[in-house]
Write a protein that binds this DNA or RNA. Structure first.
Lengths: 272, 272
DNA sequence: GCTTCTTAACACCAGATTGTGTTATCGAAT
DNA sequence: ATTCGATAACACAATCTGGTGTTAAGAAGC
C-alpha cells in the first residue's frame, strides 16, 4: 500500500510513535484535526488513525469528536514531559554513576522528580541498605519492594506533567523529614543560578534542599542552553555540582570562577 | 531432554512462572533448597534454576547462598499478598459496581489499600471529575494521569506486604484532609466487628474513617470466615456496609439484627 | 431514509521479550 | 591445586506485544 521509500513495516513500534507525535503536534497547532486527512497525510488506514487518537486521548493529549479530534487545553504541558525520558540518556547514566560514589550504606537519600534522579534510583538497590525519600512516582515504582531499600514516598497532589507529587502538602511533609544526601536536578542553568518552569517544583525543591545535609546537583550539559522562569537557587548553594563529561570547558570555567564546587563525572577525579 | 508429558517448551512464560512459584513454596516450607536438587526435580538445567533464584531473590522472596537459597523471614508476608489479587475477583467487581453508584461527579473519594479498593478505582475514571485520595500504590499507578481524576497520594513509609504507604506520617497527612466518601475493606469480620492483621493498617484506616463524611465498607463473603488480630471498628461505625450476593443469609441476618446498614451488591435494591 | 463516522472482530506480521541450554570463564571452598 | 558452584556470553526457540488492514456491524448525523 504505502509506496514511499520510508514506509514503515507493519508492527513498527517506532514508526507509530513518531506518527502519533506528529499528530499530537498538529492538534496542538491547529486545534482540530480530521481523521481522514490524517489518514491520507500519513498514508495509513482510517482505523489506524482512530487507534492513534484513542491512545492520545487516553493520555489526556486531545479529545476525540466526530470526524476528528480537538486539542486539550493542557496539552502543551503533557507534551515534553514524557519525552525528556530518552534525552541525554548517556549523560544521565554517567551522572548517576558518579552520584552513586557518594552513597554509603545506611544513608538516607532524597531524590527529586527528574529523570536524572531516576537514573540514580536505578543504582541504589545494589548499594546496600538505604532509606530513600522521593516525590517522584517513577522512582517510587522502581524502588518499591526492593530488598535493602526503605522507601518513604512524599505524598501530595499528583502532577501528570511531572509524574510527581507536588504542592503545599508535599513541601510540609518534606520539612518534617531529614536526609543525609539530596540528589537533585534542574531544568536550566543561567549565570550560575538554576531555574525551573513552575512555582510548584521550586517550592518542593527548596524544601528538599532545606532538609538535606549534603545537596548534590546533577547537571547534564543540555541544561546550559535552556531557560527557566523561576529562579531556584545559586549553584553555590549546593555542596557539589556534578556535570557530565560533555560539558563545554568555558561553562565549567565560568562556574569555577564563581566558586561553584564542581565535579566532572567520569573524569576519574576523586569525589569529595 | 525433558521426557515427561507436560514438558514445557522453551520460552514458555507460564511454565517458568509456575516452576518459580513451586520453588518459592518449597523454600518457605523447607527453609533451604539445593540448586542441583531443584534442577533435577523440575528437569531443567542448573543455569535455569540459578536464574529462577535470581528473580526470586530480587523480589525479596529468598536469599541466594552457595549451593542453593535460604528462605527470607518476610517471605510468608509477600506470598499471599500478590495472590489475593485474583481471589474473589468476581465478588470484588460486583462490590465495586455497587460502590460506583454512590459516587457523584465532583466528589472527593478516599480509597484504602485493598484489592477491593483497586476494583473501585478502576471504575472511577468514567464517573466524571473526581478527587481521589489513597495510600495504595497500585491505585496511585492506576489513576495517575487519568483525565478527570485529581489524585492525591498519601505518602509515608512503603510496606511491600501491602503495596501501600502506612505509618505515623501517613495517618497525620490523612488528618489534614477531608473527603466526601471513604471506600474501605477489611480482612476479617467477627461478631459485628472488623479486624486487621497489623497495627499500622489499623491506625491508617482509623484516620481515614475520621476524615470522611460517608464511610462505606466493602465486604466480600470470604471475610466472614477469616480472623484478624487487631480490632478496627464495629460495623455500625459505617454509614453503609456493602456485601456481595454470595454472602450467607444467616450472616446478613445477624448483621441486620445488630443494626448494621447493609446493602447487597447486585440485588437491584436502591442505594441510600 | 441515506450517508458517514465509529467501533468491534478477526487475521497477520515483525520486532521485542523471555526462557532456555551450552560452553567457557571466573571464584570460592576444601 | 583441584573441584564444585556461580556467572557471563552466546545462540536459539517460543511467546508476547504492538501495530496494521480488512470487513462487518453499529451509531450518529443529515
Amino acid at each position: 500500500m504505502a509506496e514511499d521509500a520510508t514506509a514503515p513495516a507493519a508492527g513498527d513500534a517506532a514508526g507509530a510513535r513518531e506518527r502519533r507525535e506528529k499528530i499530537r503536534q498538529r492538534v496542538v497547532d491547529e486545534g482540530f484535526v480530521h481523521v481522514k486527512s490524517l489518514a491520507e497525510a500519513f498514508d495509513v488506514s482510517v482505523m489506524t488513525v482512530h487507534r492513534d487518537l484513542d491512545v492520545l486521548q487516553s493520555n489526556g493529549w486531545l479529545r476525540k469528536v466526530r470526524g476528528g479530534a480537538t486539542a486539550q487545553p493542557s496539552a502543551i504541558y503533557h507534551g515534553d514531559v514524557r519525552h525528556r525520558l530518552q534525552a541525554m540518556a548517556e549523560a544521565k547514566r554517567q551522572l548517576a554513576q558518579a552520584a552513586s560514589g557518594l552513597v554509603s550504606p545506611g544513608a538516607s537519600i532524597m531524590i527529586d522528580e527528574s529523570t536524572t534522579g531516576l537514573a540514580v534510583a536505578e543504582l541504589l538497590p545494589s548499594l546496600g541498605p538505604l532509606t530513600v525519600i522521593t516525590n517522584f512516582l517513577a522512582a517510587v515504582n522502581l524502588l518499591a519492594g526492593k530488598p535493602g531499600i526503605d522507601l518513604i514516598a512524599l505524598g501530595g497532589a499528583y502532577y501528570p506533567a511531572y509524574d510527581a507529587f507536588l504542592g503545599l502538602r508535599t513541601s510540609e511533609t518534606i520539612r518534617s523529614l531529614h536526609a543525609d544526601v539530596l540528589f537533585m536536578s534542574t531544568t536550566a542553568i543561567t549565570n550560575g543560578h538554576c531555574y525551573h518552569q513552575s512555582q510548584e517544583t521550586v517550592a518542593v525543591k527548596r524544601a528538599l534542599m532545606d532538609s538535606a545535609d549534603r545537596r548534590i546537583l546533577l547537571v547534564d550539559h543540555s541544561k546550559f542552553t535552556k531557560n527557566g522562569l523561576h529562579q531556584l537557587a545559586a549553584l553555590t548553594a549546593f555542596d557539589l555540582v556534578i556535570v557530565d563529561s560533555g560539558t563545554p570547558q568555558d561553562q565549567m570555567a565560568a562556574l569555577r570562577t564563581r566558586g561553584v564546587p564542581l565535579h566532572v563525572a567520569g573524569s576519574g577525579e576523586p569525589l569529595p
